[in-house]
Amino acid sequence: MLIIGHRDVRRVLDGAEDAVLAAVRHAYLRHSAGDTALPHSVFLRFPDNPHDRIIGLPGYLGGGEGRRPVAGLKWIASFPGNVPEGMPRASATMILNSLLTGRPLAVLESATISARRTAASAALAAAALPGVPRDTGVSLVGCGVINAETLHFLRLTVPGLSEVTVFDLDRERAEAFAARCARRYGAALTVRVVDRVESALVAHRLVSVATTAAVPHLDLAPCRPGTLVLHLSLRDIRIPTVLAADNVVDDPDHVCRAATSLHLAEQRVGHREFIRTTVGALLRDPHPAPRAAERLTVFSPFGLGVLDLAVADLVLTGAHRAGLGVPVPDFLPDPEAEDLPSIP
């Protein structure tokens, strides 16, 4: 078995954005074709601390197109209280298993994998739901890791993106985010920090929302008609706004649970007819139609475990090729080497 830590995961994925986009696209297409097994995620919550949670995402992703099938489990913790202490909100581990023996092949640090598959998902949705005229700017609501990665991937799938408006409840955090963007992208991006979320929502017709909100709070009325909102944190948008929007998801059964905005909307009206389509269906179309010009389009991805599997397998392949990771040959018992009790 191979243990692949954070630095080695980064060594494989840094500069491999096109490969990550291709892996996530493959996962969506296989899921749309029914070539996945994806049980509902398991949420571990704590009676005395409703803000923290650990989520288990098991799954199987079929192969094809030169890719091998993959099975495994992501175990991801979300502890928002880490952020004021200078630590990332999320930490994650992934186990990949052999489909021949069931034995574990690798254990990977997966916070980076999780962030980049989320960003790739958002970027693919933005490409599949183009604006007319084309988007040249994006507003980022929430200045954490997810929106940093989302901006990076959007620059690959939305040609001409040159303006960024950022908002965070913590003004200092937003300023630090903008400074990092300036260092990373230089003159290629103009970054502006605003003090009100309404100013961010109206600034551009492409908006990415990635916060730690636990209950819906965001009214999208300031958004201009034809805006695409990448609703990555899933619990921000108020129910009437969801019901009035053109809704695209990754999987209706997965996104309509765990008190997401869409789950609460379903509970209110008793159906899911407000969901128009899935991103997998959109990606099958070689000529994507522009998004609705007179209403909001909201993309709400639950974050399917098969996306993590696709990117984790990309990391495992790259680690083997580059000789990265720490082999643990004696992690599992070896029946031939063990002193087994005799059978009478």
Score class of each variant (00 low, 15 high):
residue 61 L to I: 06
residue 109 E to Q: 15
residue 139 S to L: 07
residue 117 R to K: 14
residue 68 R to P: 00
residue 103 R to I: 00
residue 52 D to K: 03
residue 49 N to V: 03
residue 133 P to Q: 09
residue 90 A to V: 12
residue 124 L to T: 13
residue 73 L to C: 07
residue 133 P to T: 12
residue 79 F to M: 01
residue 120 A to Q: 10
residue 100 L to N: 04
residue 87 M to C: 01
residue 50 P to C: 02
residue 142 G to P: 10
residue 85 E to I: 00
residue 99 L to N: 07
residue 118 T to K: 03
residue 122 A to I: 01
residue 67 R to F: 04
residue 113 I to T: 08
residue 66 G to A: 05
residue 85 E to T: 01
residue 89 R to A: 05
residue 77 A to Y: 01
residue 108 L to R: 07
residue 72 G to E: 02
residue 120 A to I: 07
residue 80 P to L: 08
residue 130 P to S: 07
residue 65 E to N: 13
residue 86 G to L: 08
residue 81 G to V: 05
residue 97 N to Y: 04
residue 109 E to P: 03
residue 141 V to L: 15
residue 111 A to D: 13
residue 97 N to P: 04
residue 133 P to H: 11
residue 112 T to V: 15
residue 106 A to M: 07
residue 96 L to P: 03
residue 78 S to I: 00
residue 120 A to T: 11
residue 79 F to H: 14
residue 93 T to Y: 09
residue 79 F to A: 13
residue 118 T to N: 10
residue 103 R to L: 14
residue 111 A to H: 06
residue 128 A to W: 11
residue 141 V to G: 06
residue 97 N to T: 14
residue 133 P to N: 09
residue 51 H to N: 12
residue 103 R to P: 00
residue 51 H to G: 07
residue 49 N to I: 00
residue 135 D to R: 14
residue 73 L to P: 02
residue 72 G to Q: 05
residue 110 S to V: 03
residue 140 L to D: 09
residue 94 M to D: 01
residue 65 E to H: 11
residue 70 V to Q: 05
residue 114 S to L: 10
residue 78 S to R: 00
residue 84 P to S: 10
residue 92 A to W: 03
residue 58 P to M: 07
residue 132 V to M: 11
residue 121 S to D: 15
residue 92 A to M: 02
residue 69 P to A: 11
residue 138 V to L: 03
residue 111 A to S: 15
residue 53 R to L: 14
residue 115 A to L: 07
residue 106 A to E: 04
residue 76 I to N: 01
residue 98 S to W: 06
residue 96 L to Q: 07
residue 80 P to C: 07
residue 118 T to M: 05
residue 77 A to F: 01
residue 63 G to N: 04
residue 63 G to W: 05
residue 68 R to D: 12
residue 68 R to V: 11
residue 120 A to E: 08
residue 101 T to W: 06
residue 126 A to T: 08
residue 97 N to C: 14
residue 99 L to I: 13
residue 109 E to Y: 03
residue 52 D to I: 00
residue 120 A to Y: 07
residue 142 G to H: 12
residue 90 A to T: 12
residue 73 L to D: 02
residue 67 R to N: 09
residue 74 K to P: 03
residue 77 A to M: 01
residue 140 L to Y: 06
residue 95 I to M: 14
residue 64 G to K: 10
residue 91 S to K: 09
